[in-house]
């Protein structure tokens, strides 16, 4: 579910702004997630609170936030992929 949310489900799509090899996205507006390798908590904080120009994803459910955070952390091989 996390990958689908990343590429399509989240609105606006994460792919517009972020590069993530696993999702085959090449957005260049925000940080390159492959090099940033954010862990679960950092992704979750960005999704819930926003960061810089990124606004909070208020429309996502708790389950979707969890899946998306887990997916990004896993896809980038972050040190911590669980909360």
């Amino acid at each position: 579910m996390g990958k689908a949310l990343f590429t399509q489900g989240a609105e606006p799509s994460c792919s517009i702004c972020h590069t993530l090899a696993d999702a085959e996205t090449m957005g260049e507006i925000g940080p390159n997630l492959d090099t940033m390798r954010p862990d679960y908590d950092r992704v979750m904080r960005a999704l819930v609170n926003g960061v810089g120009p990124m606004t909070p994803y208020d429309s996502l459910t708790d389950e979707e936030l969890d899946a998306l955070s887990h997916y990004v952390a896993s896809a980038t091989k972050a040190d911590n992929v669980e909360p």
């Binding site: 862990d39 679960y40 908590d41 979750m44 904080r45 819930v48 609170n49 708790d62 936030l65 040190d79 911590n80 909360p83």
Partner: peptide, 16 residues
């Protein structure tokens, strides 16, 4: 409320 709840959840992880 959710935000605060989520924050509490995150605060417990102590990952980094």
């Amino acid at each position: 409320d959710f935000k605060i709840g989520r924050r509490s959840l995150l605060a417990g992880s102590g990952a980094i």
